[in-house]
Amino acid sequence: MDHLTRLENKSIHILREAYSEFKSLCMLWSVGKDSTVMLWLARKSFFGHVPIPLVHIDTSFKIAEMIAYRDRLALKWRLDMIYGQNFKALQEKQTFPDGNCTRLQCCKLLKTEALINTLSGNWPRYRLNHDTGKYELDHNREPYSGVIVGVRSDEEGTRSKERYFSPRGKKSNWDLADQPPEFWNQYKTDFSPGTHVRIHPLLDWTELDIWEYISREKIPTVSLYYNQGEGTRYRSLGCAPCTRPVESTAKNVAEIVEELKTGQFSKIAERSGREQDKEDGGGLETLRVDGYM
């Protein structure tokens, strides 16, 4: 068995465990390359179906093409698509692009807060109606007790310390100094009321694995990842004001795989184009301990 197939099978196993063991389960889909690979793996796990709702946190500052791509795939693959948003912060213009807070505060409000309150059902959720193609207020406000997230351990320091099944406290906080043991394909699927579990099927994947798999499976991705003739492309996607492209001539998946193999980026952190990380002292720890992905 080649190594991509091995990774694929392990991830499928994890997704199926999550599906069996969590009654109220969702998958976060940022529409980036990693969570799209994860979505593809869900289709593999469930033989073409995706029996898990997909949750997208819309900061309203995402690059426009990302939202269009999200809805196109959601309709095509018949996904149970849900989004949540921090309407209050956006209304009051408590954002970095509006000049009213730092990048980190903005991330906390538009992403972490929106995520926590969308997952808990405290804030409204909007669900895609496949008949009309429009989003409608979702009446189901049940908190999600299992949340599948596409983080990879090679992305940055704290993510390398994650478990496949990682508990979050009542305030969605992560106690990384006291994590439960995890061994022999047995995962933490029991949790006390009010807490939830984050599930990480892509933990063992690297950036190159992701691209090789996209290439092998022909998974559709957003064109922002490719050089459109300007000599740049996005390596990691986030909000427009805080994400910078990298210099690259790669115009398609095969060229990205080649580019990564040559080691051109091997010494530059993948998230180096994500400005909020820098404000967090070079890592995501502050954000992640509070509930960020």
Binding site: P180, P181, E182, F183, W184, Q186, K188, D190, F191, S192
Partner: peptide, 12 residues
């Protein structure tokens, strides 16, 4: 196998 005690994997 593992043994779960009070929501936690407590032994193997």
């Amino acid at each position: 196998f593992v043994i779960v005690d009070n929501y936690e994997i407590a032994g193997g």
